[in-house]
């Protein structure tokens, strides 16, 4: 851990805040991505099942 000297608090606060914000942003992005992806697959599965003969990936 480098010796941050007199301004240690300031530097750690700035970096800590930044890393926290980035982690939050990345986390929310990934979480929503998987959420929407799962909901879409469920909907597509439901779309396929009740139409039976439709070819996979067709635009229905």
């Amino acid at each position: 851990m480098p010796d941050l000297g007199h301004y240690e608090m300031t530097v750690l606060l700035a970096w800590g805040g930044t890393l926290l914000a980035l982690a939050g942003l990345i986390g929310q992005t990934l979480w929503r991505a998987s959420e929407v992806r799962r909901a879409l697959e469920a909907q597509e599965a439901r779309g396929q099942s009740d139409r039976g003969t439709e070819k996979v990936g067709g635009n229905g």
């Binding site: 480098p2 010796d3 941050l4 000297g5 007199h6 301004y7 300031t10 530097v11 970096w15």
Partner: peptide, 10 residues
Amino acid sequence: FGSTVKILYV
């Protein structure tokens, strides 16, 4: 600036 220059990087 002492070590506060490191804040530059964010």
